[in-house]
Amino acid sequence: MSKIDSEISKIKFTCKDVRVAYSGKEALHGINMAIDDRGVTAFIGPSGCGKSSFLRVFNRMNDTIAGCTVTGEVYMDGQDIYAPSLDPVLLRARVGMVFQKPNPFPKSIYDNVAYGPRIHGLASNKAELDHIVEKSLQRAGLWEEVKDRLKDSGTGLSGGQQQRLVIARAIAVSPEVILMDEPASALDPIATARLEELIEELSQKYCIVIVTHSMAQAARISQRTAFFHMGDLVEYGLTTNIFTNPADPRTQDYITGRTG
């Protein structure tokens, strides 16, 4: 495990010997790492290296997959999120997630964003809800495009807009962390660029962990990068260090395009 200078910022997550197995087959072999409270942390690595499985550890989305088991300890702000007393529903309210393919609900744009605040009871009246929806859409950089058609279906938007809608939907719940699982993989370059700008903005306020396939993207937006390979965390450190001066030959091979 690389040394992280925790003077820069607080630590949000601490993982100790985290293992993920699907129907008994281990996909992640004991990961130890700490993730900063602010800024963007990127997970990179070849397909099937376990980076997405690891991302789903932080909001316990692995619980929803039949046969998936997670062992080890994960602390969020010092609290064990795999403790039996911990409520995954509450955890997921605090840790939002954005998926690979935009998945707006088959509802109106407004209802998509209002869904989270409604189930969590974050607004006590319509005006408050309107305010949350507007603010979230503004933060996601979508407000100007959709403010006149909030009643239209969310599935009618373009791919890039859908992904920003989904981000707005996540922000509306007031999370502390936003997990992003290859959020730009289904988007065209222009939409990707907009999304990256948005991620940078959001990183001022939220802890963002992003899985990405594109090393260029990791280099552009992240402060820290973790390189995974075949279920192991190979290298973790400041993005600039990883890309200019990788310590491990596997990292070197991957970022220079020899594997992956």
Partner: peptide, 14 residues
């Protein structure tokens, strides 16, 4: 336990 000022941890929310 560290302090938790998330709105999701308020008494009302719980």
């Amino acid at each position: 336990m560290p302090e938790n000022n998330s709105i999701h941890a308020s008494e009302y929310a719980l």
